[in-house]
C-alpha cells in the first residue's frame, strides 16, 4: 500500500515577531519546523505501513530549504520524500496550493504507485485554514474524511476504510472506499523516535525534487499568485488595548480582604453579573 503524507514547513509561530515600527513580520532567524499537526498524520501513516506493509511518501510544496523538513521526516521513518519547489508557486493561497499539490500527487501516483490514502494535518499553524486537504480531495476526487480521530478499520482487499471523525457534539463513524484523503486530528498519536537505521537511511536518501514542469503541472495560471482568487490587502499587528489592566492594590491585604476587593470590583464594573449570580444560586 502506498500512502502519501502532505507536510508543510512553517515558521515556529510562537517566535514570530512584528517590527514595532514597520508592522512587518521579522522572519530573519525565525526557526522553521514541520507543521506540528502534520506529525500526527505522518505517525498514523507509518503505523498503517507497519501493519499492512507498503511505503510512506512525504510531500512538501515550498522553498528549497523545505528539504530540511523532508529530511527530518525521513529520520522519523518515512520511505521517500518529494519536494515540489518552483518560483511559480510563490504566493499561493489554498486554492492554488491544492492545485499544485494535486498535480504532484498525480505525478507521484504515476512514478511510485497510486496512493490508497493521502494524509494531511488538520491545519497549518501559519495558514491555519484547514482547507488545503479538502481542496486536494475535491481536485483528485478522493473521498474526504476530515478531523479523523481514529482509523478503526482498513480492508485493503475490499478497498474499504472505517474511521471515527470528530463532529460537532459527537463522533461520527464513517466508512468509505479507497482511495481517500484523511485529515488527521491532533493528539491522536505520538510521533515515534526514529531509529538509528532510519537516520542512516535518511542521510543516504535523495529527496526527489520537482519543479512545476517536472511534476507535469503545465497550467501556470492556476499556480501561485496568479492562481489565487484571494488577495491579502494588508497585514497588521493587533491593536493593543489602550489602557492596561486596572490593578487592584494588594499591599498589606489579607487574601480574604483582597478577595472581597476583587469581588467588589467585578460587581461595580458589571452589575448585571451580580444579578445573574443571585438567580443562579437561588435556582440551585
Amino acid at each position: 500500500m502506498h500512502i502519501v503524507v502532505c507536510m508543510k514547513q512553517v515558521p515556529d509561530s510562537a517566535q514570530i515577531r512584528v517590527h514595532p515600527v514597520t508592522n512587518t513580520i521579522m522572519r530573519q532567524g525565525v526557526p522553521t519546523i514541520i507543521n506540528p499537526y502534520d506529525l500526527f498524520a505522518l505517525e498514523e501513516a507509518m503505523r498503517l505501513r507497519d501493519r499492512f506493509g507498503g511505503e510512506v511518501t512525504v510531500l512538501t510544496m515550498g522553498p528549497p530549504m523545505a528539504e530540511d523538513s523532508l529530511r527530518k521526516a525521513l529520520t522519523f521513518g518515512a520511505d521517500r520524500a518529494v519536494l515540489l519547489t518552483d518560483r511559480f508557486f510563490a504566493g499561493s493561497d489554498t486554492l492554488a496550493t491544492s492545485y499544485a499539490l494535486a498535480g504532484a500527487l498525480a505525478k507521484i501516483g504515476e512514478e511510485f504507485g497510486k496512493p490508497s490514502i493521502v494524509f494531511t494535518g488538520k491545519q497549518t499553524i501559519d495558514g491555519d485554514t484547514a482547507q488545503v486537504g479538502p481542496g486536494i480531495a475535491k481536485r483528485l476526487r478522493l473521498n474526504q474524511l476530515t478531523y479523523v480521530a481514529r482509523i478503526a478499520e482498513l480492508d485493503l482487499a475490499a478497498e474499504e476504510i472505517t474511521v471515527e471523525r470528530r463532529a460537532e457534539g459527537g463522533v461520527q463513524v464513517l466508512s468509505t472506499r479507497l482511495p481517500v484523503l484523511v485529515t488527521m486530528l491532533e493528539g491522536t498519536n505520538e510521533m515515534r523516535r526514529g531509529t538509528l537505521e532510519d537516520a542512516f537511511r535518511a542521510a543516504r536518501t535523495q529527496v526527489v525534487t520537482w519543479s512545476a514542469a517536472d511534476a507535469g503541472i503545465t497550467d501556470l495560471t492556476k499556480c501561485g499568485l496568479r492562481g489565487s482568487p484571494t488577495i491579502v490587502k494588508k497585514v497588521f499587528a493587533p491593536s493593543a488595548r489602550a489602557e492596561k489592566a486596572h490593578q487592584i492594590p494588594t499591599a498589606d491585604l489579607s487574601f480574604e480582604a483582597l478577595a472581597e476587593a476583587v469581588m467588589g470590583e467585578i460587581f461595580a464594573r458589571q452589575p448585571a453579573i451580580e444579578g445573574d449570580l443571585m438567580r443562579f444560586s437561588s435556582g440551585q
Binding site: L95, A130, P134, A137, A167, T230
Partner: peptide, 23 residues
C-alpha cells in the same frame, strides 16, 4: 468554522474555484 463548516467550505470553494477566507 466548525468541523462541518470547514469540511464543507473547503470542498465547495474548490468546486466553484473561488476564494475562501477561513476563521
Amino acid at each position: 468554522a466548525t468541523t462541518l463548516g470547514r469540511d464543507l467550505a473547503g470542498s465547495v470553494a474548490t468546486t466553484l474555484l473561488t476564494g475562501l477566507t477561513a476563521d
